[in-house]
Simulated scan of single mutants.
Amino acid sequence: MEIDKKTARKIDRELQSLRERIGADRKTLNEVFDKPTLLAFGKLISDRILKFIDFPISTGKEANVFRAVTPDDRIVAVKVYRIATSNFNRMIYYIRGDPRFAPIGRSKREIINQWVKKELKNLERLQEIEVPAPKPIRALQNILVMEYIGDHNYPAPLLKDIEMKDPERICNEIIGYIKKMYIEGDIIHSDLSEYNILFYKNRPYLIDLAQGVVSEHPFAFDFLKRDIENVVKFFRRHGVIYNAREIFRELIA
């Protein structure tokens, strides 16, 4: 994949502007924006998916999420998986047992690219069954462009960071999402917790779906049970008492 000089100069200007806005040094940004990633961004710009990167939203162990702007001035979220710091053994664990994906190579970039496609497919599945989650827009190599959840000034907060007025209602909604995903979508989040649920306009939104698996995965029930236990454990701290084992048994019965 090659990009023209005009696009390359534009990307370089955007990265310099980003460095100045967030105070990041060149080494830090180079870990995120290596040459293949820059080429992929160039493709997204030339395809008129993106116009520029605005500022960082979050930084995780394996990926950085940025707010970005499209050519028609819509705000979107852009997730960039870092090749240098991703846990490839963990990724393989979730990909290999998923019958939707062909056997993958051993190169880090091949694994990352498959991981991003997996997140795209899982987000598409949630859109189909109307479980609140960011709407996916485009996946390209280690980059995922998706709907931005939040207002013009701030991204939506994580569930762990909000003060809940009605925790029982929110708990019931999230458990309802888990059930709907399993029954109607044949999909299990596989890493659900208060750390990957956004709360916006009085509604929870699920994020970080790359590790999501279908029920044919050999560890699907283990993941489903863990998701339920994580949610029940979190809400127990807020006075909502449910039995995770009973919810799990009723769901798989």
Rank of each mutant, 00 (worst) to 15 (best):
E2T: 13
K5E: 12
K6I: 14
R9N: 15
R9F: 11
K10M: 12
R13H: 14
E14T: 13
L15G: 12
R19D: 01
E20W: 14
I22H: 08
I22S: 07
I22C: 09
G23F: 09
A24V: 07
L29T: 04
N30V: 08
F33K: 02
K35D: 11
K35H: 10
L38N: 14
A40Q: 00
A40E: 00
F41C: 07
G42N: 09
L44V: 04
S46D: 15
R48E: 12
I49V: 15
K51I: 02
D54E: 14
I57A: 10
G60T: 02
E62I: 06
E62P: 05
E62T: 08
A63F: 05
F66M: 06
A68G: 13
D73C: 12
R74C: 03
V76C: 10
K79S: 01
Y81I: 01
Y81G: 00
R82I: 02
F88K: 10
M91D: 00
M91L: 15
I92F: 04
I95C: 05
G97V: 05
G97D: 06
G97F: 06
P99I: 10
R100Q: 13
R100P: 09
R100S: 08
F101S: 02
F101D: 03
S107F: 05
K108P: 00
E110K: 03
N113I: 03
N113S: 13
Q114Y: 05
W115F: 01
W115S: 00
K118P: 01
E119H: 02
L120E: 08
N122E: 05
E124T: 03
L126G: 02
L126N: 01
Q127E: 10
I129G: 03
P134Y: 11
P136R: 03
R138L: 05
A139R: 06
A139E: 13
A139T: 04
A139L: 01
L140E: 02
Q141A: 12
N142R: 12
I143M: 07
L144D: 00
M146I: 09
E147N: 02
Y148A: 05
Y148I: 09
D151C: 04
D151S: 07
A156K: 06
A156S: 13
P157R: 08
L158P: 01
I162D: 08
M164N: 07
M164C: 12
D166L: 09
D166V: 08
P167S: 05
P167G: 07
R169M: 14
I170Q: 11
C171L: 15
I175L: 15
Y177A: 08
K179Y: 03
Y182T: 03
Y182E: 07
G185A: 12
G185E: 10
I188E: 00
S190G: 07
L192A: 01
S193V: 00
Y195Q: 15
I197F: 14
K201H: 14
N202Q: 15
N202T: 03
Y205D: 10
L206D: 01
I207L: 06
G212S: 15
V214S: 09
E216T: 07
E216N: 11
P218D: 14
A220F: 01
F223V: 11
F223T: 05
L224R: 00
K225A: 03
E229I: 09
E229R: 12
E229D: 11
V231C: 11
V231R: 09
V232K: 04
K233R: 13
F234P: 05
F234Q: 04
R236Y: 14
G239H: 09
I241A: 11
I241C: 10
I241Q: 12
Y242M: 06
A244K: 11
R245Y: 11
F248K: 01
L251I: 06
I252Q: 06
